[in-house]
Amino acid sequence: MEMAVFGLFALLALGSSLVVVAHKSPIYSTLSLVLTLFSVAVLFVLLGAPFIATLQLLIYAGAILVLFLFVIMLLNVGREEGIPGGHRVQLVTAILGALAFTGALWLLLRPALGAAPQAALTEELVSLSGLAQELFAEYLLPFEIVGLLLLVAVIGATVVARRPTADELAGGAGAGGAGSTGSNRAVDEVEAADATTPSWAADEDRAGGGARPASFPGGGSLAGGAAAGGEAAGIATPGVRP
């Protein structure tokens, strides 16, 4: 019985991960990744880690992949163009390299446990209270550090992805040629490069000021850029080449 469940979901994980890697449309890749994550979560349950399986479904399939889908639809990512002849070499090299690497990895892992029979499932391994005690006692400091990391990641993602305000655009245009003088150089440089393309101002007018949805700062500019049509071609080659 256990063997049948393992076989079914192992094949499901392999097949769906192949679809993730091979499908040309990112939307189908993402939806197929949901299937991969679900299959691996079932295997986690088989391995006596139901809490990790729940986290996998809630965080990965529930939150991260929704973020992926949101960005794919926001950026309107289409299918990749067909691979030209020059990229065959890349494909063959990648497959050969991956085969060599996984073969080495397997040789490394196998002698440790490969032939051992399955260990018995003990109660303390499965229990959630034991996991919580270990997590919040022995691993408390890493837990706090990971919380800090998430906070920094949220702030960083917001700063990187937000749309520059009108004030910053004006300041960036003033300092555009001479380089940035602000405290945050990286952000200023991005915004200064933005400001060198005059179509941002046109986008600002087109978006209609207050009519722009405030829930996501990037939405207005992307929609404005898409509506601009001909101007989008102008943005494609901004003067950022050194």
């Binding site: 393992f6 991960s17 890697v21 991969t36 295997l43 690497f101 996984t102 196998r110 490969g114």
Partner: peptide
């Protein structure tokens, strides 16, 4: 056997 899980893991990693 745990080796099967490791084999699956290595295969997924390669993919």
């Amino acid at each position: 056997p745990v080796g099967w899980y490791l084999l699956l893991s290595v295969a997924l990693f390669g993919i």
